[in-house]
Structure formats: structure tokens, C-alpha cells
Nucleic acid binder design. Structure first.
Lengths: 225, 225
DNA sequence: AAGCGCGGACGTACGGTGTACGTTTCACGT
DNA sequence: ACGTGAAACGTACACCGTACGTCCGCGCTT
């Protein structure tokens, strides 16, 4: 009876996979080593043969998620389109793994997977003709917006969900003296279209970048191709 | 012996205060009801007379922190300066309570304190002459950047701290084929000046907003003053 | 083929966590 | 003086992360 219970062999990959699935299904605070073990039909301590501790597991989750970034190559397009595609790729994984995003944003990703998007952003800024310092700052500004847009969106959804529970009475209780604009813009605030909101801010940044000084064109950037 | 042990009376405010202090001193994951109770020299369950559960306590922490936002009035300045001041105010509290920021970003703030910055942002967008929809989107874009810049900064610091531990060998192990720009821009990436990085992105957004279409000047905005 | 080593799965156990519940204490209105 | 209600408290339970020791089965050496 060698293959009596042919379980597919416990692996760090399978553990991380199960953790991601569990988080997406029940939320990040529902993740525990015991729950993951149960998910894999395995004893708790068996996990520790492949993962040193829970923090490392969470780092693995973060890494797995950022690996999902689809940065297509397509060298034909402009740097503007490339930058848009990159930021949109970030948004896409954030949309695919919404509940894992908290983990990604609060844990380091020290593998090559974490650096790949940065490399891409710097390459784009270089292609746009920015000097080194501006390139780095551009990358940081775009990353900041990509992150913040997502955090703001999920925070807003949580807020709206809470408001939906308590009913619309909360809005009516607002002091018109203190919050005239919030009340006046109520319709626009309530009808939120995350997609176009996101594109609005992205357009702002790209437009501002286009107005920045750049070196002529086709020049000594460090890129190899 | 009525005033034998004259403890200053347990209060929701004192509990939240202690939680904030504990988080800033030892990190968010060090916060537990027992630790807070010990901090206040009180039995654990006594806390539950003033706070329904730990989540509510964390929401209280988040609320307390956003209440720290200093949005000075100063009606004389331009909307550009007002917007800068608002985003900088956000950055200031994030700098004053860095370890509480995680809590703020992952918990709802459903009191008036949470709406006050939003009201201010909408008022500024209105003063700038944007229509309602653009005003809301402007507010969201600025908020996204403010949040993201901070999250990115603390994430980067964590990363750099980790790199400092493992030494510079990590950089030398980078594949020059895959990460030419990361390697070439190493100096700019290592020497990070969060302040000017932050201002760079903020300038981008403000500049882009200035280029947006606006209604003439002095018009029917919903603001009262 | 026989023996052995070793990695991986497992069970137990410990200290810590959030919190439900019942009990005690004590200031205060009557 | 006495009842009353709020608040502090202690106990208890289920769950958590994980240190440690045990045990089994595969693969290598002889």
C-alpha cells in the first residue's frame, strides 16, 4: 500500500496557493496556520517544514500576487501608453486579489518579482527622455498613485457598505453648515465609477509628465533594448 | 477610604489614547486588549465597558488619528496652495503616527472627523472652478496620491531596512540583463528624499489640474463662504 | 538484499489572544 | 437606610502561533 492515500505532496507553492485562496474567500483576518493546514488536509506543524513562520507565508502571498502582474512587452507603443498599461496592470491584480492587497502593501517583496515592475517603470521613464533623478521620481509618483487609488477605492467601498447597512439616514444627519459641499455633491459621491475615477487621475499624471523637460530623443539611456 | 486609589477613571478616550501610544511605541501587531489594559493598570474586561470589541477600538484609533489633521482655514490663499496644504496636512499626520497609518487605511471612519478633509477638498475644487463631477474626481485623485505616497514610503523604508540587514550583496546579485535600469539608477533609488519625492508628485497633480477647463470665476458653487 | 540515515509528516504542549458570562463593589437617588 | 444600576473584575473557553520530540518511509551505501 504505497499509494494508498495519494496526496499531491505538500509544497511551499501549494501552501501559498491555499493561503491566497483562503484570504480571497474569507478575508485576511481569517487566515491562520490551522485553517491553511485544514484546507490542505494536513497537520498544522507540517506547514513549518516548508515555511519558517506565518510572516514568511504572508510574504509568500505578497510575492505570489505581484508575480501576477501582466506587463506585456509590446515595444511599439509610446511611453505614455506603456506607463498607462503598467499602472493598469497593477490595478488589474488589485482587482483580481482585492483582499490580498492589504498583505501586499504591508509586507516586503524582496525577490526579483518585486523589482520587475520597477524596472519596467524606469525603462519607460528613460524611454520618455527623463534624466535619472526625474525617472526615479516619476516611477515613485506613478506607483504612489497606483497604490493609493486602490487603497482609497476599497476603503470607500467599505464605507459605502457600512452606509448601506445603516440606511440613508446618516446623510440626512449631516450638518449643512459644516458639510455644504459634501451634501451638494452627494450624487457624484454616491455614484462612484472606480474605473473612470482611476483613469481620471492617471490622465492627470501622464499629462503632467508630458509637460516635463526631456532630453531630445533616442539617447544614452542605460537600457539595453 | 473613598480616594484610596485615585485612578483617573477609565474612559473610552483614555483607552484609545493608550492604544495609539502603544501602537506607536511597539507596532500595530503588539496591540492587544491585555496590553492596553496593563498599560492603564486595569483588568482586561473593564475595557469592554467602554469599547464593544477590538475592531471598534481600532476604529477609534483611526478616528483619533484623522482628527489630528490640521486643516488651517486661511481663506486668502489660492486653491493651489490650499490643495497643497491639505495634502501636506495628511502627510504630516502620517509622519506623526506612522505605525497607526495601517490602522487608518484598513478601518472605516464613519464620524464627522472623517468627512471634514473631504469637505475641505471639495470646497477647494469648487473654488478652483471645477464642475461637480470634476471636483469629486479631483478630490479622489489627490486623496489617492496622498495615501499612496505614504504607503509607498513606509513600504520602501521596510525594504531598505531589510536590504541594510542583508548587506549590499543583494544589489550585486541582480541580473544585469533583466534589471539594467534598476542597476543604473541605483544611486537615485538608494538616496531617497521622501519630502521632495512627495512634492514632485504633488506638483505634477496640481499642474495638471491647472490645465483643466474651469468655469470663469466667482460662480454658483454650493459653498456658503 | 540488508542496513542505515534523513527529511518530512505528525502529536503534544505552552503561552498568548479576543471575549462571553457571572460576580462583586460602590456611588447615588430615594 | 436601602435598593439600584453602572462599572470593575475573575473565570473560562475556543482559538492562535510555534517549540519540541516522535515516528515513518524513501533512497543510498555496502
Amino acid at each position: 500500500m504505497t499509494s494508498d492515500t495519494p496526496r499531491p505532496a505538500l509544497t511551499r507553492d501549494r501552501i501559498v496557493q491555499a493561503a491566497v485562496a483562503l484570504i480571497e474567500r474569507e478575508g485576511a483576518e481569517a487566515l491562520s496556520m490551522r485553517r491553511v493546514a485544514a484546507e490542505l488536509d494536513v497537520a498544522v506543524m507540517s506547514l513549518y517544514n516548508h515555511v519558517p513562520n506565518k510572516t514568511a507565508l504572508l510574504e509568500g502571498v505578497a510575492e505570489r500576487v505581484v508575480e501576477g502582474l501582466e506587463l506585456g512587452d509590446d515595444p511599439g507603443r509610446s511611453w505614455q501608453e506603456g506607463a498607462r498599461a503598467l499602472v493598469r496592470a497593477f490595478r488589474k491584480v488589485a482587482h483580481d486579489y482585492p483582499r490580498c492587497m492589504t498583505i501586499v502593501l504591508t509586507h516586503k517583496v524582496d525577490t526579483a518579482a518585486g523589482l520587475r515592475p520597477m524596472e519596467r517603470a524606469l525603462a519607460l521613464a528613460d524611454a520618455a527622455g527623463f534624466d535619472a533623478e526625474t525617472a526615479v521620481r516619476t516611477m515613485r509618483a506613478l506607483l504612489a498613485y497606483a497604490i493609493g487609488a486602490q487603497v482609497r477605492e476599497v476603503g470607500m467601498e467599505k464605507m459605502l457598505g457600512h452606509l448601506a447597512e445603516t440606511g440613508a439616514e446618516s446623510w440626512n444627519r449631516l450638518d449643512p453648515e459644516e458639510f455644504p459641499h459634501v451634501i451638494a455633491y452627494g450624487p457624484q459621491l454616491a455614484a462612484h465609477d472606480p474605473e473612470s475615477d482611476f483613469e481620471f487621475g492617471l490622465d492627470l499624471l501622464i499629462a503632467a509628465l508630458e509637460a516635463l523637460p526631456r532630453r531630445p530623443a533616442g539617447k544614452p539611456g542605460p537600457g539595453t533594448g
